[in-house]
């Protein structure tokens, strides 16, 4: 069965304030979508809501993933179904090494398929280590990365790479990348872009959230959507991203009569 993500008329609010207002979108395995929108338009709200963050209240609508309405599921259940979110601001977990965490996560996510776990329900150490080392090499990160505490004291670039490493290890069906390119210098964007493009294939659907088209130079989307004030106002192909690159968001805002968000994050 194909594991598509289908969003129907979704409404999400944060602290009682409606942010996502009736959004429709469908991402199939093997497809690459870009969701572009200015700061404060609700991109991260959508991403967190899809993953099941308790602070983001789903007011109405449905999110069907691989045939299941996931809105009733805890975040870990969604992860086990094959949904993944690379966070815009990954949280630090002091004292927990990336390797320890990833072994538990990989074991949890793969447990459903009943493959390769030992008595503790953990993926065998040797197998895990081999896989981790290979993925780290592909990402161009040092072996010592695995021994560091998760996101604790990581630079912006390291955090984003750690997210992509997790993406590579967890092998989801649908991955949402929330501004994985923001705060990175040109070289770091290239490394992250190239790593993600290596993961792309018929098994993986990707929703790339960004407000700059930089990352898209490495991962060319088939579909581009523009999010304004909690709704997708235009959908198209690569030409939409090029248009934004050339003209910015002002003409679009003007067209839909939406003022610039004053209290939006930067």
């Amino acid at each position: 069965m194909s594991k598509d993500l289908v969003i129907n008329d979704l409404h999400i609010s944060v602290q009682g304030k409606p942010i996502i207002k009736g959004l429709n979108l469908s991402v199939k395995q093997g497809e690459i979508h870009a969701l572009m929108g200015p700061n404060g338009s609700g991109k991260s709200t959508l991403a967190n809501g899809l993953m099941g963050h308790p602070l983001y209240e789903i007011d109405s609508g449905e999110v069907i993933f691989s045939g299941v309405d996931v809105l009733e599921l805890e975040a870990n259940e969604r992860a086990k179904l094959g949904l993944f979110l690379a966070f815009q601001y990954p949280t630090a977990i002091p004292g927990v090494t990336l390797a320890n965490f990833l072994r538990l996560a990989v074991s949890a996510v793969r447990a459903k398929e009943g493959n390769g776990s030992d008595n503790d329900g953990l993926i065998p150490m040797r197998e895990f280590r081999g896989e981790l080392r290979e993925k780290m090499r592909q990402l161009g990160v040092d072996d010592s990365f695995a021994r560091r505490y998760l996101n604790d004291g990581f630079s912006g670039g390291e955090k984003k790479r750690a997210e992509i490493l997790q993406l590579a290890m967890l092998e989801p069906k649908i991955a949402i990348l929330d501004e994985t390119d923001s705060g990175l210098d040109i070289d770091a964007v290239r490394i992250v872009g190239e790593s993600v493009s290596q993961l792309i294939g018929p098994e993986l659907g990707v929703l790339i959230i960004t407000h700059y088209p930089r990352l898209l130079d490495y991962i060319r989307p088939q579909f581009v959507h523009i999010l304004l004030d909690g709704n997708i106002v235009e959908s198209g192909g690569w030409e939409l991203a090029q248009m934004l690159e050339a003209e910015g968001y002002d003409p679009i805002r003007e067209k839909y009569g939406i003022k610039e968000e004053q209290n939006g994050e930067v």
């Binding site: 993953m51 099941g52 963050h53 308790p54 805890e74 975040a75 870990n76 969604r78 992860a79 086990k80 993944f84 979110l85 966070f87 990954p90 949280t91 977990i93 927990v96 320890n100 965490f101 538990l104 996560a105 990989v106 949890a108 996510v109 997790q166 967890l170």
Partner: peptide, 19 residues
């Protein structure tokens, strides 16, 4: 922290134990 770990497949108990 809990959400971060749970979004990677850990149950709430596993996540809090890890924290």
């Amino acid at each position: 922290q809990l959400f971060y770990l749970m979004s990677r497949g850990l149950s709430e108990e596993e996540a809090s134990t890890m924290i």
